[in-house]
Design a protein around this nucleic acid. Structure first.
Length: 949
RNA sequence: GGGCGUUUAACUCAGCGGAAGAGUGUCCGCCUCACACGCGGAAUGUCGCAGGUUCAAUCCCUGCAACGCCCACCA
């Protein structure tokens, strides 16, 4: 068959859409619940509905697709579950921002129903975008199962889980200290608060002792206690001052009253061991309603709880009327002024203040006492920790186990209610008549106790509550579905280490609680993708690599123009960064280049420094593969796959020696087995870069650099000449091996680079009974029967001699096109091999070779020593550059002598000979012999040059 | 304040007890009939520092230093 020439460069845009629709139309991504084969399942971490595919998704999802495609090809019933997360608070931020910009309204102006309508609208508009991008990346997700965290099935699962936990006493409502985010006007969990050190002040304030003169004084004789604070406005809510019980300076004051300045109130001095006597004055003002520590203290000491800051961040009663209505900042200024005026302010000094900020809004968190819904974490966590300890779930890399265990064993109750609208509304109803609380799966019509009117809790659940149920809610839970039986637990979860607490830990807890099983067997934690300098990608830095740009390409102008649309905080900085990072724009490199790059760079270290240049390197690899295939297709005319297969005695896999293979064929087939074995081992252990590199080097260094070159003379038919039968048979064998190796390589590479491999595979001539798509063929396994150590050793010698010869040619500037006569001298064993493969060496090094056992010195020849006893002599006659030659050989000689020195030293050490394993000693001895022989040859070369002293 | 990680060629990283590796970059020569997104060749490392264990250490142990990440309620 004659194949029309392929383009010289692989064009992904021609290839990708074609095969994507082919795969989708044929349902190749679909897994059957009822299949009898062994299941292999992964649930995609559902991306936020607000998002588009970024490089972190591309990394994590590519690894998942590699695993899924690999297992599918191995015959597993591979199922990859797609879905999208409703991302409660993130949606609020975006929709509210939009509302403010367009209509100058807040969500409260709109009302709950209207806001929800808009949020759904928004979801419908942007929700499918990320799924489309996932399809484009070739991710073989089972789209027939696609889910959303707020669809009916998820809603049902959420209610079921909530009600059960409530009934079991694991969900409860309580007034506790929470993190109030004034920016989003909701409570957030501890995990959603980032503590950062900021510049602030530490104020020292005098609290006079009531009746100090009568009762005696503190150690320094003054009638007061000095307290320090970074938040002076909270003094309006102080209900006491705490000192350490063993602090001798204060023991006699415990129980006494202090006059709280500005308020007219008196507060007691209490003893509590949380106070550090060494810090400041050793006395702490206690504001139980607005500081977690102080709240704890009040619980121990019985101090009153006075809430003086309201949820809007304004001062309220029982603070003095003067301050009521002020914001926290205004109150701070006023309080300080008043304290100073009253002579209560001792000093103000600059201070690094640890300040909690909301991850979402960036606003300073206000600790507050509020009634909220909680999940009692300890019992759930105990089981989740035990499961990991027992090895039911393991982390890869293993170091994350500690992070997980530490959190699980120090876990605090999880605040799950949020004062937002977009999300799952809490299924709790309150009766105004009898104050009964009803928690139910189905919306109750009236109060079960008094038939009074019910009012549903206004709050919704933390986004992560539904996420915690995701591995089983997506499979139909709470129903006992077939899908659940087949695909739960999942085999692997692939996600980022940043959400171990948010998500992984909670899935473990909920999974074990509701199904009695861990949700997944292995958790593979991905690396963080940064720019080439290790900096986090950010819009303002202008260093964001958008996977879609890498796939489709983008000019510098297009990247800059995008800034004008997106309007990040600092557009000029962003543009500067873009010019710096993407000065030449981004070439269109296609999906496979990006996927392969991500796999090849994923060595398992904590971050991956990605740059356009790195992707280009792997784009070049894809192109190399393309061209190797192009070469093959141009030379496969007349090839009959069925005939070849028959000669291989019953199929590629089972084939054995009915075909007379020459050494290069045996060699490349043997190396192919090594590549298969390496890929298999690597993938079993999540070593994605090892797998990618094994394929890369097999294809480039072995298949392209050597096998194809050696195959050429057998494939090229002399113009116009009739080939003899032998040459024709030989040609067919070489065609068959080349086609077979390429076909196997496509299967091996397919999980990493699905598009280009499918394209090539479809074009390759192959026996007719193979499946319609590469993605459902069988993944290659190393076959020992094709491993041929002898062929590998022979080939190694051929390569070494060719390389040494090329080196001499390059050193002496022999024109690349010129064929030169070279003398090869060798000991008996290698000489036999050299004679056998003379033609291969001659071709690889563009020489004509005279092979001999040795002989008289040849003056005027450049000489290279290969291994122990092979020498390459390049006759140069008068052209030899003696000093250059001398320098080169002496360098080799020095290396060799140094090596000998080391080896001799080892052997001279009696302990080494006595205690090291026998084979190690024998190996050292052999190396010494070889090296000595090499030295002799080098010295001989110098003597021939006539420069030896 | 705890915990974890990193430190190997100019850059980015593999290797982790028995001869220092890759990719990129650099230098030299090539548009050789698959590929210039290419071909051939070359150069480059006290394997962070100091001790220790071992016949043997880049690899194991201890300490130190620098950098990074995570957790944490010191007012």
């Amino acid at each position: 068959m004659t194949t029309s020439a392929l383009p010289k460069q692989y064009d992904p845009s021609e290839v990708e859409p074609k095969w994507l629709s082919f795969w989708l139309d044929n349902g190749f991504f679909h897994a059957d619940d009822a299949s009898a084969t062994v299941p292999f399942s992964i649930t995609l971490p559902p991306p936020n509905v607000t998002g588009s595919l970024h490089i972190g998704h591309a990394l994590g999802s590519t690894m998942q697709d590699v695993l899924i495609r690999w297992r599918r090809m191995q015959g597993f019933n591979a199922m990859w579950m797609p879905g999208i997360d409703h991302a409660s608070i993130a949606v609020h931020v975006l929709v509210e921002k939009d509302l403010k910009r367009r209509e100058h309204k807040t969500r409260f102006d709109l009302g709950r129903d209207e806001f929800m309508r808009r949020a759904w609208q928004w979801k419908e508009r942007s929700g499918s975008r990320i799924s489309e991008q996932e399809k484009l990346m070739g991710f073989s997700l089972d789209w027939s199962r696609e889910r959303f965290t707020m669809d009916d099935q998820s809603n049902r699962a959420v209610r079921e889980a909530f009600v059960r936990l409530y009934e079991e006493g694991l969900i409860f409502r309580a007034k506790r200290m929470i993190n109030w985010d004034p920016g989003s006007a909701t409570v957030v969990s501890d995990l959603e608060v980032d503590t950062v050190e900021e510049n602030g002040s530490l104020w020292s304030i005098r609290y006079p002792i009531v009746g100090a003169s009568a009762d005696g004084a503190v150690a320094d004789g003054s009638g007061e206690i000095i307290v320090a604070t970074t938040r002076p406005e909270t003094m309006l809510g102080d209900s006491g001052v705490a000192v350490h019980p063993d602090d001798a300076r204060y023991t006699q004051l415990v129980g006494k009253e202090l006059a709280l300045p500005l308020t007219g109130r008196t507060i007691p001095v209490v003893a509590d061991s949380f106070v550090d006597p060494a810090f400041g004055s050793g006395a702490v003002k206690v504001t139980p309603a607005h500081d977690p520590n102080d709240y704890e203290c009040s619980q121990r000491t019985g101090l009153a709880i006075l809430q003086v800051i309201d949820p809007k961040g304004r001062i309220q009663a029982p603070a003095p009327a003067k301050y009521i209505g002020m914001t926290v900042d205004e109150a701070r200024t006023a309080v300080i002024a008043d304290l100073e005026a009253g002579g209560f302010l001792v000093e103000t000094k600059p201070y690094k203040v640890p300040r909690g900020r909301s991850q979402r809004s960036g606003v300073v968190i206000e600790p507050m006492l509020m009634e909220q819904w909680w999940v009692k974490a300890a019992p759930l966590a105990a089981r989740a920790a035990a499961a990991v300890e027992e090895g039911k779930t393991r982390f890869v890399p293993e170091l994350w186990t500690k992070t997980y265990m530490h959190w699980m064993t120090n876990i605090k109750d999880w605040c799950i209610s949020r004062q937002l609208w977009w999300g799952h509304r809490i299924p709790a109803w309150y009766c105004d008549a009898c104050s009964q609380v009803t928690v139910a799966r189905d919306t109750p019509a009236a109060c079960p106790a008094c038939q009074g009117t019910l009012r549903q809790d206004e709050d919704i659940l933390d986004t992560w509550f539904s996420s915690a149920l995701w591995p089983f809610s997506t499979l139909g839970w709470p129903d006992k579905t077939r899908a659940l039986g087949t695909f739960y637990p999942n085999n692997v979860l692939v996600t980022g280490p940043d959400i171990i607490f948010f998500w992984v830990a909670r899935m473990m807890m909920m999974g074990l609680h509701f199904t009695g099983k861990v949700p997944f067997r292995t958790v593979y934690l991905t690396s963080i993708v940064t720019d080439e300098n290790g900096d986090k990608m950010s819009k303002t830095k202008g260093n964001v690599i958008d996977p879609l740009d890498v796939v489709h390409g983008a000019t510098l102008d297009a990247l800059l123009a995008r800034i004008d649309v997106e309007k990040p905080p600092d557009p000029e900085a962003a543009k500067k960064g873009i010019k710096k990072h993407f000065g030449k724009g981004i070439p269109a490199m296609g999906v496979d280049s990006l996927r392969f790059a991500l796999a090849a760079l994923n060595t398992g270290s904590s971050r991956i420094r990605l740059s356009i240049e790195r992707v280009e390197g792997y784009r070049n690899f894809i192109n190399k593969l393309w061209n190797a295939s192009r070469f093959a297709l141009m030379n496969l005319d007349g090839y009959d796959p069925e005939r070849f297969e028959a000669a291989f005695s019953g199929g590629y896999a089972a084939g054995r020696g009915h075909v007379p293979l020459a050494m290069p064929e045996k060699w490349i087939l043997s190396r192919l087995q090594a590549a298969c074995a390496a890929v298999d081992t690597a993938l079993e252990t999540f070593r994605f870069s090892d797998a990618a590199n094994a394929i890369y080097h097999f294809v480039w260094d072995e298949l392209c650099d050597w096998y194809i070159e050696l195959a050429k003379p057998h494939l090229h038919r002399a113009e116009g000449l009739q080939q003899d039968a032998k040459a024709s048979a030989r040609r067919h064998v070489v065609q068959g091996v080349l086609a077979t190796v390429l076909e196997t390589t496509m299967r091996l590479l397919h999980p990493f680079a699905p598009y280009v491999t499918e394209e090539i595979w479809q074009k390759l001539p192959k026996p007719p009974q193979l499946p319609a798509s590469l993605m459902i063929t069988v993944f290659p396994r190393a076959d020992q029967a094709w491993v041929d150590a002898g062929a590998e050793a022979e080939m190694q010698l051929v390569q070494d001699v060719a390389v040494a010869t090329r080196m001499l040619r390059a050193t002496y500037g022999v024109p690349p096109a010129q064929t030169v006569a070279v003398e090869l001298r060798a000991g008996d064993a290698p000489r036999e091999t050299l004679e056998k493969y003379k033609d291969l060496i001659e071709r690889s090094a563009r020489i004509t070779a005279a092979i001999s056992a040795g002989g008289a010195a040849v003056p005027g020849s450049a000489k290279a020593v290969v291994g122990a006893d092979v020498q390459v002599l390049l006759p140069l006659g008068g052209l030899i550059d003696a000093p250059k030659e001398k320098a080169r050989i002496e360098r080799d000689l020095e290396k060799s002598r140094k090596e000998i020195g080391g080896l001799e030293k080892k052997l001279a050490n009696g302990d080494f000979v006595a205690r090291a394993p026998e084979e190690v000693v024998a190996e050292i001895r052999q190396r010494l012999r070889d090296e000595e022989s090499r030295t002799k040859a080098l010295i001989d070369a110098l003597e021939t040059l006539g420069v030896m002293k």
